[in-house]
Amino acid sequence: MRIAIGSDHNAFEMKESIKSFIEELGFEVLDYGCHSCEAIDYPDVAFKVAQDIADNKVSRGILICGTGIGVAIAAGKVPGIRAALCHDTYSAERAQLSNNAQVLTMGSQIVGIEVAKKVVYTYLNCEFSGGNSKRKVQKIIDKEKEYTQKSFR
């Protein structure tokens, strides 16, 4: 599985640690930046990660900013992407099992690195279960398509 990872400058150090951790787990990691503590705008990174997921270039994404909120909102603007803000393992598990979220977001100023690693581990080791959740996720997909079609009329 190819995993995209990205962050803003507020989360650069956490991104670097999480990137190494994901590689240790045996996944291929593509780093979308940022590549230093120099200030950048998080939407630029979030859009790139989300678009490559939508284009099937990578399987899933991990995005980190100060709170995880901004990158979740930005990634969710790319059609077809479901981004989930998770700061605990139960939410990370449900993001995948119940919601088939392709992007996990976290806040570097909210959780420490060891908790972040557990959250990432949980998220990457779960698969969408379908069942009753499949119907609910499909409703989200259908509504997004409806809104997307309206916006281009």
Results as ranks from 00 to 15, higher is better:
S7R: 03
D8R: 08
H9V: 13
H9W: 08
H9A: 11
N10R: 15
M14V: 01
M14N: 01
E16L: 06
F21K: 02
E24G: 10
L25W: 09
E28H: 14
V29W: 13
L30E: 15
G33W: 00
S36V: 09
C37Y: 09
C37G: 14
C37Q: 14
A39L: 03
I40F: 00
D44E: 15
A46I: 05
V49T: 04
Q51T: 01
Q51V: 00
A54L: 00
A54H: 03
A54R: 05
A54F: 01
D55I: 05
N56T: 06
S59T: 09
S59C: 07
R60N: 10
R60G: 03
I64F: 00
I64V: 06
T67K: 08
G68R: 04
G70R: 01
A72Y: 03
A74I: 04
A74Y: 05
A75F: 02
G76P: 07
P79C: 01
P79A: 01
R82S: 06
R82D: 04
R82T: 05
A83F: 00
A84V: 04
C86V: 08
Y90M: 09
S91H: 06
E93C: 09
E93N: 11
E93I: 06
S98E: 12
A101T: 01
A101K: 00
A101N: 02
A101D: 04
T105D: 10
M106S: 10
Q109T: 12
I113A: 10
A116P: 04
A116K: 01
K118G: 12
K118C: 12
V119S: 02
Y121V: 04
Y121S: 08
Y121E: 10
T122I: 11
Y123S: 09
C126N: 15
E127F: 05
S129A: 15
S129T: 13
S129D: 13
G131H: 10
S133K: 05
S133I: 02
K134P: 02
V137G: 07
Q138F: 11
K139F: 07
I141A: 00
K143W: 15
E144F: 00
E144K: 01
E144Q: 04
E144T: 04
K145A: 02
Q149D: 14
S151K: 13
